[in-house]
């Protein structure tokens, strides 16, 4: 990746962070705690994106049997898991500061915990198969099936249960109830974290492909 792209991404992330700590107004009932939201939501979004891309490249791998697609699928799943962990962690801190407890087995917390177990198992699966072709096959089938659970665990189940978690950004009535400045900064943060995800993905791919060649 060209240096200018890396530099632009870094600048973008720094700008977003600065905006979060400067122009974002304190929110009703949350005060400045609302700042965590600008990192927490993008992390959760990128985790879902990682799992989606992993499933997509798994299909590509199963069709073509090209190792490149397996590496892409595997890297996307691992990055998804890392961002899922970050979302869980930032969520637990957010929960402590607003609800009053880090962990309460709230439906949101239970479902993301299941998600962490599912994609944690992906890493063990990959590590447990020696033969590269068999490993790639097993990983592709597993991540494809895992993704079926993602819409349920992330989008559907939490909407049907009483929860301490705020309603999703786009609520059941299909409306976004957020201050205009906050929406602007949140969109910038979403773009920035997505950029970070893609940068890490290509960086990881470069490292893993040179390792394969050696």
């Amino acid at each position: 990746m060209p240096k200018t792209t890396t530099f632009a991404l870094l600048l973008w992330l720094l700008t977003v962070t600065t905006l979060v700590f400067t122009i974002v107004p304190p929110a009703l009932g949350l005060g400045y705690l609302v700042r965590i939201m600008f990192f927490h939501i993008p992390m959760a979004w990128v985790a879902v994106l990682g799992f989606l891309l992993s499933a997509w490249w798994a299909i590509r791998y199963l069709r073509t049997k090209q190792m490149r697609y397996h590496l892409l699928s595997s890297s996307a799943a691992r990055l998804g898991l890392i961002f899922c962990l970050l979302a869980t962690g930032s969520g637990a801190i957010f929960a402590k500061l607003t609800w009053g407890a880090y962990w309460n087995w709230d439906p949101r917390q239970t479902t993301i915990f299941i998600l962490l177990l599912i994609y944690g198992a992906y890493i063990s699966l990959e590590a447990s198969v020696e033969d590269p072709a068999r490993r790639a096959n097993a990983a592709a089938v597993y991540t494809l099936f895992s993704f079926i659970t993602v819409p349920f665990l992330v989008f559907i189940i939490p909407r049907f249960f009483e929860s301490l978690h705020p309603e999703p950004l786009i609520n059941n009535a299909g409306k976004i109830q957020m201050d205009s400045i906050m929406i602007g900064v949140l969109l910038a943060a979403l773009a920035g974290i997505t950029g970070l995800f893609l940068w890490l993905l290509q960086y990881w791919m470069k490292r893993r492909t040179t390792k394969v060649r050696e």
Partner: peptide, 17 residues
């Protein structure tokens, strides 16, 4: 024994901007 508080779902500005 414990009280947990649900955070507001509306991200609105505190007071008037």
């Amino acid at each position: 024994e414990r009280i947990l508080v649900k955070c507001p779902s509306k991200y609105q500005v505190e007071g008037d901007r």
